[in-house]
Structure formats: structure tokens, C-alpha cells
Design a protein around this nucleic acid. Structure first.
Lengths: 242, 242
DNA sequence: AAAGGTAATATGTTTGTACATAATAACTAT
DNA sequence: ATAGTTATTATGTACAAACATATTACCTTT
């Protein structure tokens, strides 16, 4: 085994075990329904107790990354790339969680005149410029999403920020802007020429289209975001209860 | 304490503790930031070990219902304003809200052998038949969605019910089945021959595809629902807060 | 060959015990 | 008074040890 657990590290053993499992899963060690070693074995291999290992596995099971079955064992849940609406993780964080390494294909930051939709959402004058960030991201060899984000002038972005950092972390730490509420609209559309080129698919291909309206604590608009996801590469999951 | 734990019950102690905590929280016993008794105390009160109690608390913490803080204790998380409940309107109610009158184009009710996905979700044997309801609905002149619902045998539907009534009302009033939790997966796909015909669009047209897993109060599966929405005719909205 | 019973094997449940750590409260020395 | 230290108290981490239970695989009986 390439990875192992450091008993002298200040990082809790169960946390170490958790990231270790993630790595193994990401490297398709246990990918695609392949059952992983049973708990007693694994615990022995990692030189930790079964209880501690179980803490790690439980977390991944709760996330939906692993599936347990009595007698059969524990295996990786086969699932497309997915996004939970509940938790507020950024795209890259979420992908990392799933063991997928994200590559940034393009990153453009420009100042633009707002279009009608942005103007209306931000409640600003048409001559007030807004910062626009465009991104194409995907797995190693294939782009699968095109994003465009517009930021309210109030946020105070200059355009020189390090946009490779998780976005909401950046906003929170550097600009004291805390995103607390988001409204999203999801629909399916056909790829036009622009999107087809960005995502390297034929014109007319099915695309999952998502608009996202983000607000801060005072319910003031701070970001408007649109995303075009290549079909089959993305599953949006929502959990609701009453 | 009104509630207590039954050590002779077949229901695991941690599960009992979990529902017990939920009840207490629901009854605002520990509501609104009020700290609850510490773990050692609570464990003693419930006559279970701290480890077991912790299992229960952990789950609620994962869900975001409780918040732990060292030295301070555990308290009920400040509730988000999320209007999750409005997700719980039936399709026709939702459309009415938007001023769209729904026409039912097709309505088929049949008994079928479950496919692998249904079987796995319902946790039933492959020879156990399930009730399947198919529907094509849309605006006056154009169909825009194809639905298929599968119901768990436990629900007790016969197939002779009046499916023109709102579904969740029917389940609740006639069968005492209360849907409380739903998980949805949304993605974009290209229309195959079957869907193309149902929705009267060319093969390959973009389609919003939605899977819905519905559970009752005991988190038992009761309905599996898939929906194919014609592009542009449907927008899915989600509101989330933190 | 089909039905039924049994063993094996994985996860599931539960307890008891011990020490670590973070945050506050209480105390102490300057 | 205030800064710094210490004690207290909650959660956090970790282990070992049993027994329960569901499911499959295998064996046995009819």
C-alpha cells in the first residue's frame, strides 16, 4: 500500500483514514463497484482499530460515496459527478471530495457592462461596470462545464484576486462577504455555437443549464452565476424534507 | 422525561435515541440555541452508553440539525429560512401557481416486474410486482413532460385509485402514507426514440431528466419517480441557505 | 432437482474505559 | 486593575471486546 497512517501525527487517525480512503477511491483502486477489503482486514492493514476506521467509512457512507451491504462488504457507489444543493461547497471542493481532480481550461476576468438580467438582479444602473469571471473546467482530458460569474460592485473585487482559490473562501476571507442564500434555476437546453465550442460537443447537444442567484446575510445580491454542463457529466442532487 | 428508550426493542438503541432527540428538538425542548444536557448526563438519563448516544448525535450533526462546540456543549442549530416546503407541491399545483393549466395526455397504470434500480431502491425481490404509473402531461396543445412513478408494495395501492387527484394527497388521505423526504437527481440527456415520441420532439433533443426518490417518515422508500421534461418548457428552482 | 437447513462472513450494535484538547471560568501574581 | 496561569468542563479521539444480524454459499434431505 502506498499510503499509510502516521500515529504520531497531530491529525486524528480517523481523519487520516478518511483522506486515505478518498485517495484510494480517486485512484480507482476501489472504483466501479469493486468491493474494498473488509473492515477487520483494513483496520489491520492501517494499524488502527476497527472503530476508528468505521468513523472514517461512516463519513463517506453518509456523503454517499460508499455503500455498505451486510455480508457483501463495502463498495464505492457508482455515481456520476454530482452536486448537493444543501452543502455550500465550491465546485472544486466538491469535486475533490469525489476524488476528481479538476483542471482549469480557461480563466478570463473582465469588466463588462451588465446585461438586462444582471442589471435587474443587482439593481444597478446600466453604466455601472461589473466584474465578470469566465471559466471552463473539467477532468484531465475533457472540459465539462462553462461558468460565467458576475459580481456586484459592492463586493469590492478588483479582478486581480487569485481566482484559483475556492470562491466562497475568497469572498469570505478577503472581502468579508458571506454568501448565505442562493436561488437556482435549472433547465435543459441545446448547445449553441459558443457553448459547443467551449465544451467541445456538437451544436444542439443537450446541456444542463443552471442559473444561480447568490445573496449575502442581508439578502443583498452579490453574485450572478450561469453554468453550462455537458450532459451526462453532471448530476444535480437535491434533498428536501418536510 | 416523557420519552424513554426501550432496551428490549428490536430497534437499535442509537436509532431510538436519534428519533427521541428529534422529537425533543421538534417540541422546542432544546430549541433556539438552548444547549442540551451534556453527553455524559444525557447518556445516563437515557440509560445508554455515551458512545451509543454519540452515534445518534453525530447523525444529527451531520444533517446540520445540531451544532457541537467544545466546552460549550451541543445545541440546536439556528434554523435556515429555507423554504423547502414549497418543493412539496404536486406538479399540477405547481403549474397552477404559474398560471399554467395542465392537460393529461396519457395515463397508464400497470403492474410490472421491477427493474434493477427500482428493486434496489425498494429493497424487494425481483419477482415482487410493483405498481407503475405513467403520465404524459402538458399545456393545451403540447405535451411537455413524461412521468413514470413506481410505488412500493407497502403503500398498498391497487391501481384503481383516482390518479387525477394530487398524488401526495391521495397517499396521505387514503393510504396513511406520508412522504417526508425526497432525494432528487437532475441531469440533461438527449431524447431517445421513446421519449421523442411521447413529447413530440426530434430524437436527440435536449431533455431535463429528473429522478426522484421519495421516503416516508421512517425513511422507508415509498416512491420512485422519473421525469423527462422537454427543454425550455421547464425550469427547476432550488433555494438553499446556510 | 428442488427444498430446506446450516455454516461462514461481512457489517451492525453496544459497552466500558482512557486520555486528548479546546474554551471558558477562576485564580494568582504583578 | 490587568495580564498571565491554572483548573474545570465539555466534546474529541481511540482502543478492545462481545454479541447480533443479514446474506450468501454450501450442504443435506426429500
Amino acid at each position: 500500500m502506498r499510503y499509510s497512517i502516521d500515529h504520531k501525527s497531530p491529525i486524528p487517525l480517523h481523519a487520516q483514514a478518511e483522506t486515505l480512503l478518498r485517495q484510494l477511491i480517486a485512484e480507482e483502486e476501489y472504483q466501479n463497484g469493486k468491493i474494498m477489503p473488509n473492515e477487520v482486514e483494513l483496520a489491520k492493514m492501517l494499524a488502527i482499530s476497527r472503530t476508528t476506521l468505521r468513523q472514517a467509512i461512516n463519513k463517506l457512507v453518509f456523503e454517499g460515496l460508499l455503500v455498505r451491504k451486510k455480508r457483501l462488504g463495502t463498495k464505492v457507489a457508482q455515481a456520476g459527478v454530482s452536486s448537493k444543493s444543501n452543502n455550500w461547497l465550491s465546485f472544486s471542493q466538491e469535486m475533490k471530495l469525489r476524488g476528481i481532480t479538476i483542471r482549469n481550461f480557461e480563466l478570463h476576468v473582465t469588466w463588462e457592462m451588465p446585461n438586462t438580467e444582471v442589471m435587474r438582479f443587482f439593481e444597478i444602473k446600466p453604466d455601472k461596470q461589473v466584474l465578470k469571471m469566465e471559466r471552463v473546467r473539467g477532468k484531465t482530458d475533457e472540459p465539462f462545464v462553462y461558468f460565467a460569474s458576475y459580481f456586484h460592485p459592492r463586493v469590492g473585487l478588483t479582478g486581480d484576486e487569485d481566482f484559483k482559490r475556492p470562491l466562497y473562501e475568497l469572498l469570505e476571507h478577503e472581502h468579508s462577504v458571506i454568501a448565505t442564500l442562493s436561488k437556482e434555476e435549472i433547465s435543459a437546453i441545446a448547445a449553441d455555437k459558443f457553448i459547443a465550442e467551449k465544451l467541445r460537443v456538437p451544436i444542439g447537444s443537450p446541456i444542463l443549464f443552471r442559473k444561480r442567484f447568490v445573496f449575502d446575510q442581508g439578502e443583498r445580491p452579490i453574485e450572478f452565476n450561469i453554468g453550462y454542463y455537458k450532459a451526462d457529466s453532471f448530476v444535480y442532487t437535491v434533498e428536501s424534507s418536510r
